[in-house]
Design a protein around this nucleic acid. Structure first.
Lengths: 351, 351
DNA sequence: TCGAAGTTTCAAAACGTTTTGAAGCAGACT
DNA sequence: AGTCTGCTTCAAAACGTTTTGAAACTTCGA
C-alpha cells in the first residue's frame, strides 16, 4: 500500500508538496501536480483515511440509531431509508454506523456511540415534540440532522415535508369537492409529523367552516388493522352521521379503511372519498389500490440525499440555516375521491 | 476531551505507562494502575479510536452489507438480525457499519468499504453456493464470519443451523407417523440453506424408502402467496394423488399452505399434516397459527451473539476452527401434525 | 546588479495512540 | 563494594496524513 512518503521519495519531493498536489491546493506548480497525480496513479496510492481522520479530527462516519419498537415489528420505512441513506453517504465517502436502541432513555444509545467517539454526527429520525435527543446533542455540540420537521424556528438542519400543509391541502381539496363531514385517521400524535398533520387538519377545517366532531378524529400507530377498525367505527354510523370523506395518515391505514368501506357496502368514491398520504414505499403502491388512491405524495427516498448532504455540510461547518428544507407534498388526484353525494351543495362552493 | 497526555501530565507519569496501565499490561505497579484508572475516570478519558486504529491497524468496527432485493422489499429477517447483532457487538465495544449493496457485482460493496479501511471484518449473510464474497475476502485476508452454514469443511468461522437435519428430522418425524407421500415447499435453492434442506429431505425420504414425485417439490423465494399457490397445486390432486404431509420452508409459506388447505376444505391435521421451519420472528408466531404449527425451530436471534463473538475473536487472532457452530433445530410438536389417515399403516412402524 | 514581490517547495510539528529498547531502582547474592 | 536479578518506568519512534512557518527559487522593476 503506497503512502505519501513513497510518492515523495519516488519524485524527490516533500510529502507536504505531494499532499497539497493531491488535495488541489492552488500554490503547487501545474507541472509538479501532473507528476504527482501520475505517480499516485502509477503506485496505486490510496489515502489512508484513518491517518487523515486523526489529523483532521473527523472520522468520516455518521451514526444513526433506530428505536426498537415495543412490538418488535420492523418499521415499514426503515429498510427503504437505510438504502437511500447509505447510498447518498457513500457518494461522499462517508459510512453509516447503525445501532438499535433498546433502552428506555432515548439518549443512552447516542451517549454510548459518542463515547466510542467514532462518528462525526447523527441522523435523527422520527422526531417527537421537544425531542430529548435534540437537546442532548445540542448540549454536546454534536452535529446532527433531523429527518422530519419538528418546529419552524430551529437552529439545526432538517429535511421534512410540511405536514401541516399535507392535511391542509387535503382538506382544501375535499371541501372544494363539497365535503364537509371529513374524518381523520391520523398517526400517533406523540410523533411530530402526526401532531403537525392534526393541526393542519383542524386549521383547514376551521378555515372552511366545517365542524369536527371528536369521533371523526382518531390517532394511533399506523397499521392496516387500525385503519380497518377506526374506519369501521366511523362509517357504521352508530355514533352519529358518517363522514363523506376520510383522510388517512398512510396508504397502510387507507388499505384498512377501504376494506371497512367494502365490508359496509359503501362505494368508494361514490359514498366515501378517501385521501391518503403516500410515502411512496415500494410495498404499498397507492396507484395499485382499487380504486387508485388520491394521495398527498412525497417519496421518503427523496429525503435521503438531502439529509446526507445536509449533515455532511453541517459537519464541514456550514451553518444550519441554509440546510433546512421543508418540501410541500404533491397532491395527486386519482379515483378514490369524488364530489360529495346528495347534499344539494354545489361542488364548488364560494369560499 | 482528555488524552493520555493529559493523564500523564496530571500524574507525572509518561504516556507509555498510562497506556499500559489502562490496557491491563502486567508490568505496571498495582498502585500506579489504580492512580491511572482513577485519573482516567476523573478526567473523563476516552481512547481516541482513530489514533488507536492508526497505530494498531484495528478500528473496532465491523461491516455488514445487505443486498438490496430486486423487488425492493425489506427482508423479513433483516431488522431482527440487525437488532441482535448491534446489541451483541456493543457488548464488546464494537460498532456496526452498514451498507446496502445495489451493485450487480456481489463483491463491489465490500471493496468500497475496504478502501475506506474502516472495518476490521465483515458479517456475511445469506450465503450462496461458492459465494463470491467468501473468495474475495479470503483472497484479501479480511476476517469474516458467515451467518448460515455453507459447507462442512471450510476454514472460516460460521454460525448456522444444520439445514440438512432440519428436513431430515421433519421427514423422520412424519414417516414415523406413517406418512409416505410428503411434499416440500422449499426456499430458493440458490441460497445454501435451501439447497441443504432439499438434500436433507431427499436423503431422509430415500432412507425411509419413500418415493418423491417431482411435483412434490417446489422451490421459490419464501412468501405467503408462494405457499398458497404451490400448496394449492399439490393439494388439488390434478397432477396425481395429493400428499398427506407437507414440509414448509418457513412459517410464512405455511400460512399460505394452510389457507390453500382451508380453501380446498382439507382439514389440518386430519387430512394434511404440516411441519414448518420456524425462525421465531416476532411477526409470525407459529404457536398462534390455527392449528398451532408443528415446527423445527431455531430462533434467528440466537445466532447474533455467537456471530458477533466469533467475528471479534477471529479478528483477535483466534483460529477459525474453534469458531464454527452448527446447531440442530429443535422439533416442536404441536397440532398441525397427526398420523396419516386411512392407510392401515401403524403410526409407529418398526424402523 | 540589487532588492522586492511573488511563486513554489520544504522541514517540522501536530493529531493520540501503541510499542520498542533502554534505563532506573530496588533487593539479593557474591 | 560490585554485580546480577526482577520489577517498574521512561523517552522516543512509529502509524500516515495535514498544516504551519520558513526557505528557496523566479521574475520584475529600478
Amino acid at each position: 500500500m503506497a503512502t505519501l512518503k513513497d510518492i515523495s521519495a519516488e519524485l524527490g519531493l516533500s510529502v507536504a508538496t505531494v499532499s497539497r498536489a493531491l488535495n488541489g491546493f492552488p500554490e503547487v506548480n501545474a507541472r509538479t501536480r501532473d507528476r504527482v497525480t501520475d505517480a499516485a496513479k502509477r503506485l496505486g496510492y490510496r489515502p489512508n483515511r484513518v491517518a487523515q481522520r486523526l489529523v483532521t479530527g473527523r472520522s468520516g462516519m455518521v451514526g444513526m440509531i433506530v428505536k426498537l419498537k415495543a412490538d418488535m415489528t420492523a418499521d415499514q420505512t426503515f429498510f427503504d431509508v437505510i438504502t437511500g441513506l447509505t447510498a447518498a453517504l457513500a457518494a461522499r465517502d462517508v459510512d453509516l454506523v447503525l445501532a438499535v436502541d433498546q433502552h428506555a432513555d432515548p439518549t443512552a444509545a447516542y451517549d454510548r456511540m459518542l463515547e466510542r467517539n467514532v462518528v462525526d454526527g447523527f441522523i435523527l429520525n422520527a422526531p417527537v415534540q421537544d425531542d430529548a435527543r435534540v437537546a442532548f446533542l445540542q448540549d454536546r455540540g454534536i452535529p446532527f440532522v433531523v429527518h422530519g420537521q419538528t418546529a419552524a424556528e430551529v437552529d439545526y438542519p432538517f429535511y421534512g415535508i410540511d405536514n401541516w400543509a399535507v392535511n391542509a391541502d387535503a382538506v382544501a381539496f375535499l371541501t372544494a369537492l363539497g365535503h364537509r363531514r371529513i374524518a381523520l385517521l391520523n398517526g400517533d400524535v406523540r410523533w411530530s409529523y402526526a401532531a403537525d398533520r392534526l393541526t393542519g387538519f383542524r386549521d383547514a377545517m376551521a378555515e372552511a367552516g366545517c365542524p369536527v366532531p371528536e369521533a371523526f378524529i382518531s390517532t394511533e400507530r399506523p397499521s392496516e388493522s387500525y385503519g380497518y377498525t377506526a374506519a369501521l367505527a366511523m362509517l357504521s354510523g352508530r355514533a352519529g352521521p358518517r363522514p363523506t370523506a376520510m383522510i388517512c395518515g398512510s396508504t397502510l391505514i387507507a388499505a384498512g379503511a377501504l376494506q371497512a368501506a367494502r365490508d359496509l357496502s359503501l362505494g368508494v368514491p361514490v359514498d366515501l372519498s378517501v385521501v391518503a398520504h403516500d410515502d411512496a414505499l415500494p410495498q404499498l403502491r397507492a396507484i395499485a389500490f382499487d380504486p387508485a388512491l388520491t394521495v398527498t405524495r412525497s417519496p421518503l427516498r427523496d429525503a435521503c440525499k438531502p439529509l446526507a448532504d445536509a449533515l455532511i455540510d453541517h459537519i464541514g461547518g456550514a451553518p444550519a440555516k441554509g440546510l433546512q428544507t421543508l418540501v410541500r407534498a404533491e397532491l395527486i388526484v386519482r379515483n378514490s375521491t369524488a364530489p360529495v353525494p346528495d347534499t344539494g351543495v354545489s361542488p364548488w362552493p364560494s369560499t
